[in-house]
């Protein structure tokens, strides 16, 4: 029975490896230049270290076997224990040389990975400021032209193949920006500006999340990264730059009045309206996003109802208060928010 359960135990980690190759959120996703380079470096390190480790284990095994034989020969009485094997000296010299070559190889590989990453960072084409907040991501696409500067939240769109500098800030505590499929982690530190260059290589959707414990809702602080072709990206950008349309139905109009004059506007902003709060996610194109409350819920009408009525039961401790809207107000607010495509 034993060998069979051992075999099963050996297969389990392999299955786990299968999970890692899902591209949505994976260190092995290799969807960005940095991730690819690090992955190559990782395999080189793993190969070299595994080879050396195997050699050490073989030597150790040989040493154990040899000392047992020596004990049987009763070395103390024969006095022959000082004589080493003739091959020992050359083996040790070879071993030291192997260590030297291995370490030099690893150093050279690290150096070239580092240089090529610096080269990718040299020609940035797009600059995005991401500000970490408890517990959501504020995203601003910087542009020299104020009319092209775009503010959104919790959903980052990147054009494929374009080196993008992501400037990282924090409004409260330390957070960490981590999109495993694209690049490594980088901290967002209050009062400091950090940055990371991302060069996405494949289109698709990737999940990012805060990787530094930042408070009760740290687990519900995630980010959707949509990598798309350059024309699609420009289309998205120009659509997001549009102000929110005026609602047409009476119900949505009532919601518009409540949102722009009531408590919502103290924190949220909606382009083209008087709602101009800057302490909560921008809602101008809320309904075009894929998630609600930084990845807590998928965006749909039911979740929108639940979230607006009682955010504290869905994400306890979140800074959005439970206002206690009356049913008619709730219907109106949700009807208005759904027009924010």
């Amino acid at each position: 029975m034993m060998p069979r359960s051992f075999a099963r135990a050996a297969v389990l980690p392999l299955l786990l490896g299968g999970c890692a190759y899902q591209r949505y959120q994976s260190d092995f996703g290799a969807a960005g230049v940095e991730d690819r380079q690090f992955l190559t470096l990782f395999w080189i390190f793993l190969g070299v270290c595994a080879f050396m480790y195997a050699l050490v284990i073989i030597f150790l095994g040989a040493g154990i076997a040899r000392s047992r034989r020596a004990a049987e020969a009763n070395v103390v009485e024969t006095g022959r224990h000082h004589r080493s094997h003739p091959l020992m000296r050359s083996t040790l010299i070879g071993w030291a040389a192997l260590i030297g070559v291995g370490l030099a190889g690893l150093a050279i590989a690290s150096f070239f990975t580092d240089r090529s990453m610096a080269a990718a960072a040299a020609n940035e084409k797009l600059s995005v400021t991401v500000t970490g907040n408890q517990w959501w991501w504020d995203i601003v696409y910087n542009s020299g032209d104020a009319s092209k500067t775009l503010r959104t939240a919790n959903e980052l769109h990147l054009p494929v193949g374009v080196p993008t500098r992501i400037i990282l800030n924090s409004a409260d505590v330390i957070h960490s920006f981590w999109v495993p499929s694209l690049a490594g982690k980088q901290d967002l530190i209050p009062g400091r500006e950090n940055d990371i260059i991302i060069v996405p290589k494949t289109t698709g959707m990737f999940r990012g999340q805060c990787a530094e414990f930042c408070g009760v809702q740290h687990a519900h602080m995630s980010l959707v990264v949509v990598v798309e072709s350059y024309p699609d990206f420009v289309k998205w950008w120009s659509h997001q730059l549009q102000p929110a349309p005026m609602p047409t139905t009476p119900l949505a109009m009532a919601g518009y009045k409540y949102v722009t004059t009531g408590p919502c506007s103290a924190c949220h902003s909606i382009g083209g309206t008087t709602a101009g709060g800057l302490v909560a996610p921008d809602l101008t194109h809320l309904a075009s996003r894929r998630s609600l409350a930084a990845g807590t819920l998928p965006m749909n009408e039911g979740n929108l109802y639940g979230w607006v009525e009682d955010p504290q039961s869905l994400k306890p401790g979140v800074h959005m208060p439970t206002i206690g809207l009356e049913p008619d107000q709730l219907h109106a607010v949700v009807a208005y928010l759904e027009t924010l495509k």
Partner: peptide, 8 residues
């Protein structure tokens, strides 16, 4: 009143 909740 009306801009912040009672709690806030």
């Amino acid at each position: 009143r009306g801009k912040l909740t009672e709690d806030q």
